[in-house]
Computed example of a mutant assay.
Amino acid sequence: MKEEIFDRYIQAGAAAKKILSRGADLIKPDITLIEVATFVEDMIQNEGFGVAFPVNISLNEAAAHDTPSPDDTRTFAPGDMVKLDIGVHLDGYIADTACTVDLGNQPLLCEASIAARDAAIAAVKPGVAIGTLGGVVAHEIKSRGFLPVANLTGHGLDQYCLHKGPNVPNIPGAGGAILEEGMVLAIEPFATTGTGFVHDGKREEIFGQLVRRPVRLPAARKILKEIEERNGMPFARRHIHVKSADLALSRLIHDGIIRTYPVLSDVPGSYVSQAEHTMIVTSDGCIVTTV
């Protein structure tokens, strides 16, 4: 990896660490979700970085992909388990990090995802099969009486690319990709009191561009112009400042130009915790950029 690229990853990681901590401190009963999301995204940009994806604020059984809508009035409540997942980039080089804020009394569930993340990081080095990391994650979570979320994974990162191979499983697997020096990974275990599987919900507030091609609808053209600088990275409905945005988004989705990221949830009444760091694989281990 070139030194200038390495430096960008390190700078993005340091910023992400600070901003995640500040955002998590805001999460308290009666505070609105949109207040936290706005604070985090404003801070990322005020610090001189870019927002790699809309701030994810996922409650209780929701594991990922929830973000406030433009007119969101939801507030945090006592007992909530809140996942705060943020992405910071510098010239497209991304730091992806997340934590869980427990507004109830489930410290062991939070500990399960943290311990799984840290144990997996400790196992990272060139030559290790990716399936080995899944086994480490699952062991730490199951030993505390919970289940790993089997159909969510960590992932590789690249410039302007949030999800590049290899995927980092949360369950054991034979073989798989072999870690190599210079790989950039986001390891993000999810521990759950539910079934261990998430499903697509009806709520869709995050979108991503799949292809570039001409469109006829003027509002759709304006949306594509607004998101052009994102280079394919996800955006939120609340980021769009175009009249008739909902109609235009529906057309872009129908035409296969834009995709949705539905909220991913375990069964109602369950709770999910998450912990995540970004790291660069080195010759003898890894450097974690978000600590």
Rank of each mutant, 00 (worst) to 15 (best):
E204G: 02
V40A: 01
K2D: 13
K17A: 11
V136P: 03
A186M: 12
I258P: 03
T289I: 14
L249H: 03
P169Y: 02
S143K: 15
H277T: 09
A115L: 13
Y271N: 09
R22H: 11
H155K: 14
G92F: 05
T260F: 06
G23K: 00
I206L: 13
F235D: 03
G182S: 08
T278C: 07
G196H: 05
Y93A: 01
F76V: 02
K18H: 11
D284I: 12
L20C: 05
E228Q: 14
D25N: 14
G13K: 01
L59Y: 03
A115V: 02
I227V: 15
I34H: 06
K202G: 15
V184A: 09
A236D: 01
E204L: 11
T132P: 00
R212K: 12
I27M: 03
R74D: 10
E188W: 03
C161R: 10
S250Q: 12
R251D: 10
G50V: 04
Y93I: 03
I57W: 07
I114D: 09
I258W: 06
S143H: 11
I187K: 02
P268M: 07
E188A: 15
S270G: 10
K222T: 12
I27H: 03
G104Y: 06
S21W: 09
I253F: 00
F235N: 09
R251G: 07
I5K: 13
R8H: 12
S250W: 07
T38S: 15
R203I: 12
D71V: 13
T278Y: 02
A191K: 02
P169V: 08
Y93W: 09
L224G: 01
A15G: 08
A16M: 04
G196T: 04
V291I: 13
A174Q: 15
L152D: 03
G23S: 10
A24R: 09
S113C: 05
T100I: 04
G285H: 09
H239E: 12
L247W: 08
L103P: 01
K17W: 12
D42M: 13
L264V: 01
V128F: 03
G131E: 04
C161H: 11
D91Y: 12
P107A: 08
I223H: 00
S270L: 09
A177M: 11
I187H: 06
I94R: 05
D118A: 05
I240C: 05
K225I: 12
G196S: 06
P54A: 07
V168Y: 00
H139L: 10
P54I: 08
A12W: 00
K2G: 13
Y9Q: 00
G23P: 00
Y93S: 02
G79P: 10
F39H: 09
R8C: 09
M233A: 06
P78Q: 00
Y9N: 05
F76M: 00
L59N: 05
H254R: 11
I31L: 07
I57E: 00
R221T: 05
L217F: 11
E204M: 15
T67N: 04
H277E: 14
R216S: 12
G194A: 05
P268G: 06
G23H: 02
K202N: 14
H277G: 10
K202P: 13
I206W: 00
E61G: 01
L108T: 15
N170S: 05
C99Q: 06
N167P: 09
G269Q: 07
F39V: 01
K2P: 15
K243G: 07
I223K: 04
E229I: 11
L217M: 14
A63D: 04
R74K: 14
